[in-house]
Design a protein around this nucleic acid. Structure first.
Length: 853
RNA sequence: GCGGACGUGGCGGAAUUGGUAGACGCGCUGGAUUUAGGUUCCAGUCCUCACGGGUCAGAGUUCGAGUCUCUGCGUCCGCACCA
């Protein structure tokens, strides 16, 4: 037996070693080439790669490899989002230091990534927990501090009473429970650090239009998150007191319909304005609210509750006095934390007024209605003003402007744009994060750590118990420092930063990863950024992607970069789902070995209960995970990559299916055998090109066209691979001799397949006698002349119905083709004796005969 | 409730954007090779014996609709008292 077998376990590690030794994927910095920056969202080093990672990194790797072959200098780096809570949990659960735990996880995952054959430039690797990196995270924070974009304030935060720690909003589920302990979170007032992302709200919204390469869905989510509303700020003086209640409304046109004013329960004016008679009721109400989680309090199906606080407010537009209430449906964090209640024209106010018997005054008449009628629901549509004094008769859109202008002229208010976006709370009372580089001095206040003193190192020797204060706060030796300004005893900030800050600028650092003089050299950034193609999960549609856009704009305003947006194209890949068994009745998940199949039905092995077979996102608790290492051991990296790219388009969810994995393995085997047979075949002397060869050559160049389009335009790796399979089939079916065209076919197949299956193609390329790496070869070019055909199948339609095709000369004109069609069997059958009214001709494609009757 | 996306064979998915629906793969069926095979190869595989009919259902535009418009049904995702 001469033909060797395809054995990925042999060839893959060998080539991975060679590539690394040769520095094959070191970043090409030749400035004469166009740049391409391909980036996957870097992972949290949890210890093991999962299939989601494999999918993400394979996609970006193919893109990077194609661009390299096309002559671009490609930046394709990898690093580690290495700070975060799981490391502290490991310390608590197993007594490992977070740094050691993280380091060994990184080592393992780096090995796993290398086993996938990903073409990273490992010389640019970075980890956010490295002081050489987080020094610049601290520097970035100080820039924001100097710009007034970082500040401290008292804020309501989520407090987990079991874990004794603060949680970020995203770590609390929709029922108000901690993701880790499952405890109901409480609201506490704590002094926290914030970044003023709201300063950029308008620009973050507007610049979404600069991003045609982003999925519409992500842009919509960001726009909703920013939540721009146009309206007015209006002031209601409190009767008998100097205080004024400011409200934000999108409906200034309804101001004469105000029948009460509501403050959020947390509003500072509540204490000041509550009358002695009302105080007991108010305090009881506030206490009741304390018992509820934020999620419970704001649940929409909950009846709205409130109490009057005794004070009256004056509506300056009609001089009416209306009561001031507090109610649970008013959010302190949005707008001014106070609203005007217009029951007739706002659904929430309507419900509230009905419940408490407050007056409902209609001030907008729907079109075609000429006098107020009792309302069954709030009327929120357009109309004409009534009961509004001087504004009666105005259409309500005009009235919005007129009334806002009057408010402004009289000093009662102004036009205002309000955003839903809140400032970014970055304080974390945790150990494994970047220390916030400030010092609190009794005499000088908050003093930033001077830049030469950076980094503020995270001390190694700490007790991590998950109880009590932040671990850093307990390290007296670390906390106590002299004030940088006055030299007197002062204390370090003991909060660390949200890890989303670490990841909001890492893509800059990859361009200049070893710079120890600056966060980066602006020249180098200009040379590589923005990121041309960013790939990651949809779960970051808002958080990471919004934060990164914000930081980019800050750096731009600081004069360090000259562009507005960090990621030109964004691809959000779909989930990888596993075969999942769950009880039909209970929805409980079952391990595969607990399930038996009989007569096509799936049942619980023990109880016989019916079991549903579905695909769901892979997770330990669902017993549906597939370990990448096992797949690699069994089929090799090339098969895993091919499967994951072929099974579904990149944005769609992907169902892991062992049978399809084997299908890909079979395909690579076919390619292997094809090349082995080709090697054994003696080369034939040159002859005239046969029709079969012309046909094959056309297939070759159609494949080049298809694969090129699918890997550089709209990413459709599944159809690219389908085209490669077709080419393989065509080469296998080719009955001719070992001709020049066949040579071209084999060579082109390997070159086009190389970005997808880098190992087998490299091996076969060398077996064919090439010395240089296939991954350094230029990308095949389409020869337009190869696509030209002599004869086409012309589609014949009658009245729009396809009746078949006839072979026709490609160059023939319409009249000739019509003659051919009429003379053909199809023409005889369907057109004989009919009157042809009209003929539609699509050049090179079809003839459609429109006939009488 | 609001916003977005989507509905194509037994399954995953194709269809140059208005021009032969079902590429490619999985699965399945039959055959061949093999000591054997969960190997490989060959043939077939939308439905129908056929005429024909088919892209969730219904209507519309068009010579022609999976593709465009409207209505309905269904699925998925995001937001959810944001004034």
């Amino acid at each position: 037996m001469t033909a060797s077998r395809y054995q990925p376990a042999d060839i893959e590690p060998r080539w991975q070693r060679t590539w690394l030794e040769q520095g094959l994927y070191r970043t090409d910095t030749d400035p004469s080439r166009p740049k391409y920056y391909a980036l996957s969202m870097f992972p949290y080093p949890s210890g093991n790669l999962h299939m989601g990672h494999v999918r993400n990194y394979t996609i970006t790797d193919v893109i990077a490899r194609v661009r390299r072959m096309q002559g671009y200098r490609v930046l394709h780096p990898m690093g580690w989002d290495a700070f975060g809570l799981p490391a502290e949990n490991a310390a608590i659960d197993r007594g490992v230091h977070p740094a050691d735990w993280t380091e060994s996880n990184i080592a393992n995952m780096r090995r796993q990534l290398q086993a996938l054959g990903l073409s990273y430039d490992w010389e640019r690797e970075l980890a956010t927990c490295d002081p050489r990196y987080y020094r610049w995270t601290q520097w970035l924070f100080l820039q924001m501090w100097h710009l007034g974009l970082a500040y401290q304030k008292e804020a309501l935060v989520n407090w987990d009473p079991v874990d004794q720690t603060v949680l970020a909003n995203e770590q609390v589920d929709s029922e108000g429970r901690s993701w880790r302990s499952g405890a109901k979170v409480e609201q506490r007032y704590l002094k926290q650090w914030f970044l003023r992302i709201t300063h950029y709200a308008e620009e973050l919204l507007q610049d979404l239009d600069q991003l045609p390469g982003w999925p519409e869905r992500v842009k919509t989510m960001q726009a909703n998150w920013i939540g721009r509303s146009v309206g007015a700020y209006l002031e209601f003086p409190v009767v008998g007191r100097p205080a004024k209640i400011g409200v934000f409304t999108t409906r200034p046109d309804t101001v004469c319909g105000v029948s009460y004013v509501v403050l959020a329960p947390e509003h500072p004016l509540v204490a000041e304005l509550t009358t002695p008679e009302q105080r007991p009721r108010v305090e009881q109400f506030l206490q009741e609210l304390q018992q509820l989680s934020p999620a419970e309090r704001t649940a929409e199906d909950r009846p709205k509750r409130g109490v009057p606080i005794g004070a009256m407010a004056l509506n300056p537009f009609n001089q009416q006095q209306v009561p001031v209430w507090i109610a649970d449906y008013v959010l302190y964090e949005y707008g001014t934390g106070a609203v005007m209640g217009v029951p007739a024209h706002d659904e929430r106010d309507f419900a509230f007024a009905q419940q408490y018997g407050l007056p409902i005054t209609q001030v907008i008449l729907p079109p075609g209605v000429d006098q107020p009628m009792p309302l069954e629901n709030a009327y929120t549509g357009p109309g004409t003003l009534v009961n509004s004094g001087e504004f009666d008769g105005l259409d309500n859109e005009t009235a919005k402007e007129t009334i806002t202008q009057k408010a402004q002229a009289q000093g009662w208010g102004e036009a205002r744009v309000q955003y839903r976006l809140r400032d970014w709370l970055i304080s974390r009372q945790r150990y494994w994060g970047v220390p916030i580089p400030v010092i609190h001095c009794q005499h000088c206040g908050v003093v930033p750590v001077p830049e030469p003193d950076l980094p503020v190192l995270l001390p190694r020797d700490v007790q991590i118990t998950g109880r009590g204060l932040s671990p850093l706060a307990q390290l007296e030796a670390w906390v106590n420092v002299p004030c940088p300004t006055c030299g007197r005893p002062a204390r370090r900030e003991t909060d660390t930063m949200d890890t989303f800050i670490d990841s909001s600028w890492y893509f800059f650092r990859f361009a200049d990863p070893h710079n120890d003089q600056a966060i980066f050299d602006p020249q180098v950034i200009q040379n590589w950024l923005p990121v041309d193609q960013y790939v990651g999960g949809i779960e970051h549609a808002i958080l990471h992607l919004l934060y990164s856009r914000f930081v980019t704009k800050v750096l731009r305003d600081r004069g360090l970069i000259a562009f507005d947006e960090p990621f030109t194209r964004l691809l959000t890949q779909g989930m990888v789902q596993g075969l999942t068994y769950k009880h039909v009745q209970t929805g409980r998940y079952l391990p595969p070995d607990q399930v038996i199949q009989e007569n096509g039905e799936y049942r619980d092995k023990e109880t016989g209960a019916p079991v549903a077979v579905v695909y769901e996102k892979m997770s330990k608790s669902k017993y549906n995970g597939v370990d990448p290492e096992q797949v690699l051991a069994r089929y090799g990296a090339d098969t895993a990559r091919m499967f994951i790219l072929f099974k579904a388009p990149p944005e769609k969810d992907l169902e892991w299916d062992e049978a399809d994995v084997e299908g890909q393995f079979r395909f690579l085997q076919r390619v292997w055998r094809l090349v082995q047979q080709y090697r054994e075949q003696p080369p034939a002397p040159a002859t005239d090109t046969t029709p079969a060869e012309r046909e094959l050559r056309r297939t070759i160049h159609q494949t080049i066209q298809q694969v090129t389009a699918d890997t550089t335009g709209e990413y459709q790796f599944n159809t690219a691979i389908a085209a490669l399979m077709k080419l393989t089939n065509a080469l296998t079916d080719y009955q001719g001799t070992n001709s020049g065209v066949f040579d071209e076919g084999i060579r082109t197949l390997l070159l086009l397949l190389a970005p997808f299956a880098p190992h087998i193609t490299e091996e076969l390329w060398h077996q064919l006698g090439h010395q240089d790496s296939i991954h350094r070869q230029p990308w095949p070019q389409v020869d337009p002349s190869a696509l030209v055909v002599d004869e086409i199948p012309l589609v014949i339609q009658v009245m729009g119905k396809t009746r078949g095709t006839i072979p026709a000369p490609a160059q023939a004109d319409q009249a000739t083709l019509e003659q051919l069609a009429l003379a053909s069997e199809i023409g005889q059958r369907y057109l004989q004796g009919k009157t042809i009214k009209k003929v539609i001709y699509v050049p090179g494609k079809l003839l459609n005969f429109v006939i009488e009757g």
